[in-house]
């Protein structure tokens, strides 16, 4: 269900901008795993707070999810949340050469690192192309192995008019692949700022 947070043209622009950001994330991930990363084209979807668990469950059909959050500040501020399904966690552990049974702290550390790479490359790239400076807080684990509905209990502090832009992220490496979703939680005033920034960007073409 679309909320029409962005027009079709704004969505298309954001998607291409996110694509460029994910290219950078891909290079960083390739560096971590010392393997070529095949990139996919990120799609941008939108959801209101109430629809978020359903939207995430749609993209990641796993029973339990783990999420890492990271705040971002600047002309556009909000919270970035990277969501991994249990399959994605296992795939990542496999990539790092861990056995199937990861200690919780090892898994957290791995997810924090990967999330940080994705968030800073993607949001940093978006901010740069929209001529907006952005800085990030340190990443922290929002929830570990919870059902989709439980994931957002702890974001109840977010204003009710917060909208979310969801960027699908898929990285395929030669031997493995992993998928996760990047949610950009944007309060209404930031959603306005991102719309204006996208319009400025679009005015160039």
């Amino acid at each position: 269900m679309s909320l029409n947070l962005l027009t079709e043209e704004q969505n298309e622009a954001l998607q291409e901008i996110a694509n460029i950001g994910m290219g950078r994330a891909g290079r960083s991930i390739a560096g971590v795993f010392d393997e070529f990363v095949e990139l996919s084209v990120p799609r941008v979807r939108e959801a209101g707070l109430d629809r978020l668990p359903a939207a995430v469950a749609d993209l990641i059909p796993d029973e339990t999810l783990t999420a890492v959050r990271q705040g971002f500040f600047g002309r556009v501020r909000g919270e970035a949340i990277v969501v991994f399904g249990i399959t994605g966690c296992r795939d990542l552990a496999g990539l790092m050469g861990y056995g199937s049974a990861l200690e919780d702290c090892e898994e957290d550390e791995l997810l924090l690192d990967v999330s940080n790479v994705i968030v800073s490359a993607c949001l940093g790239g978006i901010a740069e192309q929209l001529n907006a400076d952005v800085c990030f807080s340190a990443p922290s684990v929002l929830a570990s192995h919870v059902p989709p509905a439980g994931l957002f209990d702890r974001t109840s502090a977010a204003p009710a008019d917060t909208g979310a832009l969801i960027v699908e992220v898929n990285f395929r490496l030669e031997r493995h692949s992993f998928a996760c979703s990047l949610l950009m939680m944007l309060p209404a005033d930031s959603m306005g700022a991102i719309r204006r920034a996208l319009d400025d960007f679009l005015a160039n073409f």
């Binding site: 460029i20 290219g23 950078r24 891909g26 290079r27 390739a30 070529f36 990363v37 990139l39």
Partner: peptide, 25 residues
């Protein structure tokens, strides 16, 4: 013309006959 900034992507396309690799944007 690609968002892929991995050096291997450039190598691959040059081997396949591209004359240049330009990074997006």
């Amino acid at each position: 013309v690609s968002a892929d900034v991995q050096p291997q992507a450039r190598e691959r396309v040059m081997k396949l006959g591209a004359i240049a690799f330009v990074q997006k944007p």
